[in-house]
Deep mutational scan, measured.
Amino acid sequence: AVSDRLIGRKSVVMEAISPQNSGLVKVDGETWRATSGTVLDVGEEVSVKAIEGVKLVVEKLE
């Protein structure tokens, strides 16, 4: 599936994300709604860990 190619990809937070609120990330020039178990600020680099419905699950790059 097209979405499977996103797992493991680097992306950049475009709208802040917290455990309570989804935000936005940009992956390969496309904007996606995303969630995370931690707070992520605009501009942080993250990695796509999973896809749940139409949202990406991301975490901060170490």
Rank of each mutant, 00 (worst) to 15 (best):
N21C: 15
D41Q: 14
E52G: 04
G23L: 03
G43P: 01
L40D: 01
V42F: 04
T38E: 14
Q20R: 09
L24N: 03
M14S: 07
S22L: 11
G8L: 03
G29H: 07
K49L: 13
S11E: 05
V57F: 08
A16C: 11
V2H: 12
E45C: 15
S3M: 14
R5T: 09
E52R: 09
V25E: 00
K49A: 08
K49R: 10
V12T: 09
M14R: 03
A34E: 02
P19L: 06
K26A: 10
E30W: 08
I51D: 02
T35K: 08
V39Q: 11
N21W: 09
V13Y: 01
V57M: 06
K10G: 07
S22V: 14
V2D: 13
M14L: 14
L6M: 07
V42N: 03
E62V: 13
T38D: 15
T35E: 07
V58E: 02
S3I: 12
K26I: 14
V12I: 14
V58H: 01
V58Q: 00
V12R: 05
R5N: 09
E15G: 05
I51N: 03
A50H: 07
G53Q: 03
G23D: 01
E30M: 11
V42L: 06
G37L: 13
R33S: 12
P19A: 06
S22I: 12
L61I: 13
R9F: 09
A1I: 11
K49P: 00
L24W: 12
D41W: 11
W32S: 00
V57L: 08
K26M: 15
R5A: 10
E15T: 11
D4V: 10
E30V: 12
L6K: 05
L6H: 04
L6E: 04
T31C: 14
A1Q: 13
G8K: 04
S3T: 12
T38V: 11
V54H: 14
V25Y: 00
V57Y: 10
S11M: 11
V42C: 14
V39F: 15
A50L: 06
V39T: 12
A34G: 04
L40N: 02
P19T: 04
L40V: 07
A1G: 11
I17H: 02
E30R: 09
A1T: 12
G53E: 04
V2G: 13
V27G: 01
L24G: 03
A50V: 05
K60S: 07
R33W: 10
G23N: 01
L61N: 07
S47Y: 15
V57R: 09
I7M: 05
G8H: 04
A50I: 04
A16H: 08
S18Y: 07
K26C: 15
T31A: 07
V13N: 02
E30Y: 09
R9L: 12
D41E: 14
E44R: 03
K60Q: 06
L24F: 10
T31Y: 14
V58M: 03
D28Q: 06
A1F: 12
D28W: 06
V2T: 11
K60H: 06
S47F: 15
E44S: 07
T35R: 05
I7Y: 03
E62T: 11
V27D: 02
L40R: 02
W32C: 04
L56Q: 01
V48H: 01
L40P: 00
E15W: 06
G37E: 14
Q20S: 12
L6N: 03
V57P: 01
V39A: 11
A16W: 10
T38W: 10
V2Q: 11
K26T: 10
L6S: 02
G43L: 04
E45W: 15
E52I: 13
V25G: 00
K60P: 10
V12K: 06
E15S: 11
W32V: 02
K10L: 14
R9S: 09
S11G: 15
P19Q: 05
T38Q: 15
L40T: 02
L56I: 05
I17K: 00
A16N: 06
E62W: 12
I51E: 02
E30Q: 12
W32H: 08
A16D: 03
S3N: 11
G8Q: 03
E62M: 12
V58T: 02
D28S: 07
G29K: 06
I51H: 05
I51Y: 06
V46M: 01
A16M: 11
A1D: 12
D4Y: 09
V48D: 01
A34H: 01
E59K: 05
V25L: 03
S3D: 09
